[in-house]
Design a protein around this nucleic acid. Structure first.
Lengths: 214, 214
DNA sequence: CGTAATGTACGAACTAGTGAGTTCACCGTA
DNA sequence: TACGGTGAACTCACTAGTTCGTACATTACG
């Protein structure tokens, strides 16, 4: 017979698959209901396994939540790292970085919600995670290099640092998603309306570049 | 004997005071723990009255939460209305509106947290409140008038509306508070550090004006 | 047979909400 | 002015239903 290691058909015991399955469901549940609102029983039910497995693999609700955060942040960092800033004109590079953040956040509403939830809890779970503490930040590194080059040529103003600019970009991109519902309820406009998407995407990079070159 | 109506010393029965007391405590509890995380028993304990009174005056946890939101939003709207935009140069007026939002949010972290929490719940409580639906928006009105005047004189670009600009300003001002903890945990910088306050306040209005006049 | 993985049933602790009775200020009336 | 009636404001103890976590049994697998 063949198939020795990666078993076929109905494999019932698969540590990695079970873990990933639980994490997928837990991500949705936590992003949807918040940490306190999320129910372990609910997560278990939507999983192909049982509640017992959640405790077996992760230890408890809080550790599961931290594992969800760790996976979500890691995924974003990997995406940021895929942008090659080095071979672009500084202005173009910064526009590109803003657009990448814009696109990424829009495509990952669950991540934005997890970040909001984590802030409600004063980021105490992030602080507790060694994995998240050790994660590099490619987007910020790229911004730093682009800003340096733009300042050397005298095109960019010198009274802001990379973190300031990152803050501006994140503000706009995060707000669109994080405050979507209250904004719509109060002003009657959906910030994610596809009809305004290109306008806002362009507005953000213009905003940053106009400011840097003023 | 004197003191007929407003009794002295130990007044034990005071509808308005009791209601306000409950709302004060509830605001802090909900802002701190979120809707699900907040405990009615906890609110009751920190109040000078009892849990039964919360149900007596507000009906339930959810109605209490809505009452908290209504009071918080009303307070902000009143503040916004106090800004006189009409007699200012359009550019100055917009800078002033940005600064008012900046200052206000910084001074009211509980409000920002309530907004974040409400977004986690898809703004369903705001949508359910008739009071919040009927609230005017002075800041947006002021922005609209200032933008119109700036465009008439040809100084401002014409491809953005007041809500776009309001979105930019809110993004920056809300993000500083709402994402303070994750930002600090990841980048090691407290966005509310007083040392950077003036820099950021100036950066925001420059950002908006440089963009509008580019 | 020993160990890793899995399923089921249960329980201790907690939580929103309520039932029922009490105190207090005020008012009309004798 | 004594007095009983009235309703709002208030207290306390209780309950019905959740929710996280676990003890215990069972199954696959080397």
């Amino acid at each position: 017979m063949a198939a020795p290691s990666s078993s076929e058909a109905e494999r019932q015991r698969d540590k990695d698959r079970t873990r990933a399955d639980i994490l997928d469901v837990a991500t949705r549940e936590f992003a949807d209901k918040g940490y306190t609102g999320a129910r372990v029983d609910e997560i278990a039910e939507r999983t192909s396994t049982t509640k017992r497995m959640i405790y077996y693999y992760f230890g408890g609700k809080e550790q599961l939540y931290i594992a969800v955060l760790e996976r979500a942040y890691s995924a974003i960092r990997a995406l940021e790292a895929s942008v090659d800033v080095e071979h672009l004109d500084p202005e173009v590079a910064i526009r590109r970085l803003a657009e990448v953040t814009f696109d990424h956040h829009e495509a990952n509403p669950d991540f934005i919600r997890l970040v909001s939830i984590e802030n409600i809890h004063h980021a105490k779970h992030i602080a507790r995670s060694e994995i998240l503490a050790g994660l590099a930040n490619p987007a910020l590194d790229g911004l730093t290099r682009a800003l340096d080059r733009g300042r050397e040529s005298g095109r960019f103003r010198a009274d802001v640092d990379a973190l300031d600019i990152h803050q501006v970009i994140s503000s706009f991109c995060v707000f669109r998603l994080a405050n979507r519902h209250t904004f719509a309820a109060i002003f009657g406009r959906d910030m994610l309306d596809p009809a305004r998407r290109e306008h806002h995407r362009r507005m953000l990079s213009d905003l940053v570049i106009d400011y840097l070159t003023s």
